[in-house]
Design a protein around this nucleic acid. Structure first.
Length: 574
DNA sequence: GCTATGGATAGCCTAGCATCCCAATGCTA
């Protein structure tokens, strides 16, 4: 998939143009990038099948951008982009990741101090050169240093959604390869961890040399770190590494268990083995020199006197003890979601009409979809005011009538994503909220207020009888921003008392609540809802990432309100 | 640079905030 590569380039171009204060063009490139990102098919395939015309048919892609895409697909290069880059050789991917740094400031830093990347930025900030620049100051310099620290910490890891599609693609190719008997991906991808270091594949094959050759010559491989008879390691164009190893059939289960990890889980299981006078390694479970289990993971766990543990739970957070006691919870499955309650339509900043979103929900096999458009505080997302909300509600009523007449079971729910203002009040009148099926409220501004103030802010919002759900409750953005300061235990207590539901955002950069908070919420008896926050119909599919997170937090169907039928789900709301 | 219609040209991308310098700017949602 070259969609993401191209999107990245277009975002870069948008930054270069914004830097020069060129109006509107940046916006055009950003829109094209967004289209590419949400595209379901590979841009190369689209071009192969439909040619230039197919490119120009994409929303936000006109003659010029189609030219650029075409050039890139044909030559692997884009001259326009390269010339922009040459003129201002700034690494935006690094610099832009620092919160508070945008294209304009990056340009000033380059022109005045020659700063091109994170390393040079850090050096200048530490030498207090930045605070002296016009338009900058002490505070900005300090914020930049803090931002750098954060970026560095998350730099080597990739978001799960950056990795998973490519992983599945390679997996399918390996599976189809002649001579491959079995293949699995393991490691943190199999555990569906929110960020991933590298990808490991495990293969059974009688022709390992052929598998190695195939693996290192996969399209998108830019560097071969090593290649032996049963092991190989490569770097992909996207910048992450993939390893493969061929293992004997008889120890496949042991290898799969070992390479899936986590390290902490493996240590715990090895200790169990030791306690029984056994030895567990990547080669098998041994009693003295005799291998007593190893063909499958189930086999190994069973011989250890444990239940099989779903990969998402393998973090040594008590799952080993629970598996020994035979009490592994029935965590929710990837097909258990019956509706998405946090989606946006073109009434606010979304890309699709309510009707289109509903159709997409039907394709997902959903029983209901909730439209939770932004409310008025968020002007950039075209947040709706009371009157506009009313008009939107009428459209939903009409569509529901139509669906009913067509004997369609899907129901569209009237929701909104209101804003929790600095003092904990909601940016839209209660009378308007009352008319909705449900209300989501979230924090979209003033992230840096003291902990007690932030906690009080959320608590006040939860006590509002109209607020049913708190969206992305901790506000973190993976690789960009830490969660805001809150007393999560107090939040849980209030949620429990008021019957407020906490969201598990499936948005790959949020995944908020995270796994550990999900576990805490479950223990506190707080109900949750898994939502995508889709701004585009294609993004309904992101639900997979939310479910994975819920599984990592041991959530069961009873903990997640949208695992239930419409009627039952509605009963959970205030 | 794209889209929508006036088919060559208008309209798109807003508002609150933090910071920096005390009115303006850049960043973020």
């Amino acid at each position: 998939m070259r969609n993401r590569e191209l999107a990245k380039i277009f975002y870069d171009i948008a930054n270069y143009l914004a830097m020069d204060e060129i109006p509107f063009k940046p916006y055009a490139y950003e829109r094209a990038a967004l289209t590419l990102e949400t595209l379901e098919d590979d841009i190369g395939d689209i071009y192969k099948k439909g040619g230039r015309k197919a490119l120009e048919n994409l929303s936000g892609v006109g003659k010029n951008i189609a030219d650029r895409i075409e050039e890139y697909l044909k030559t692997g290069r884009m001259k326009y982009y390269e010339s922009l880059k040459k003129r201002t050789p700034i690494n935006f991917e690094e610099m832009g990741a620092v919160e508070g740094l945008g294209p304009k400031r990056a340009k000033v830093l380059y022109q005045k101090l020659g700063i091109r990347n994170l390393k040079e930025l850090e050096r200048a900030a530490k030498a207090h050169k930045i605070a002296l620049l016009f338009g900058f100051g002490e505070k900005t310099e300090k914020n930049i240093l803090e931002g750098i620290k954060f970026v560095k910490r998350s730099k080597e890891r990739f978001l799960l959604n950056e990795i998973l599609p490519k992983t599945k693609e390679v997996y399918e190719k390996l599976k189809a390869l002649k001579g491959v008997e079995q293949v699995d991906y393991c490691g943190s991808v199999r555990r569906m961890k929110e960020t991933i270091g590298d990808v490991d594949f495990l293969v059974i094959s009688k022709a390992p040399a052929k598998v190695m050759d195939f693996f290192v010559s996969l399209p998108g491989v830019v560097k071969i770190w090593g290649k032996g008879t049963t092991k190989a390691s490569v770097r992909t164009r996207e910048g992450f590494d993939m390893d493969i190893r061929v293992v004997p059939k008889k120890s496949y289960g042991a290898a799969l268990q070992y390479f899936t990890g986590s390290k902490e889980h493996n240590i715990a299981t090895r200790l169990i083995a030791m306690g029984k006078g056994l030895k567990l390694s990547e080669y098998g479970l041994f009693k003295g020199p005799k291998m007593i289990a190893s063909v499958s993971e189930e086999d190994i766990y069973k011989t250890l006197g444990m239940q099989w543990v779903p990969p998402e739970m393998r973090e040594n957070r008590g799952e080993v003890e629970v598996a020994l006691a035979g009490k592994i919870p029935q965590i929710i499955g990837y097909d258990d979601i019956r509706g998405d309650l946090h989606t946006h339509s073109d009434w606010d900043g979304g890309m699709n009409s309510i009707n289109e979103m509903a159709k997409a929900a039907l394709e997902m096999g959903y029983e209901y979809i909730g439209i939770a458009d932004h409310t008025k505080f968020l002007r950039i997302e075209h947040g709706l005011n009371e009157r506009e909300l009313e008009r939107r509600n009428k459209e939903i009523d009409k569509l529901n009538c139509k669906l009913k007449n067509e004997n369609c079971k899907l129901r569209i729910l009237k929701g909104c994503e209101a804003n929790i203002l600095k003092d904990g009040s909601i940016d839209i009148k209660d009378e308007a909220l009352k008319k909705l099926d449900y209300v989501i409220a979230g924090i979209h501004s003033n992230f840096k207020i003291p902990k007690d103030q932030m906690t009080a802010r959320l608590i006040r919002a939860m006590k509002n009888p109209n607020v049913d759900i708190i969206s992305h409750p901790t506000g973190r953005i993976l690789k960009r921003r830490d969660e805001y300061q809150i007393d999560f235990d107090k939040i849980l207590k209030t949620a429990e008392e008021t019957g407020t539901i906490l969201e598990i955002s499936a948005w790959p950069e949020r995944l908020d609540l995270n796994d550990q908070n999900i576990l805490k919420a479950k223990e506190a008896g707080v109900k949750m809802v898994i939502n995508t926050d889709a701004h585009h119909k294609g993004q309904l599919k992101l639900i997979e990432f939310g479910i994975a997170q819920a599984r990592r937090g041991w959530a069961e169907k009873q903990d997640v309100i949208n695992c239930h039928s419409l009627e039952k789900m509605l009963a959970f709301l205030k």
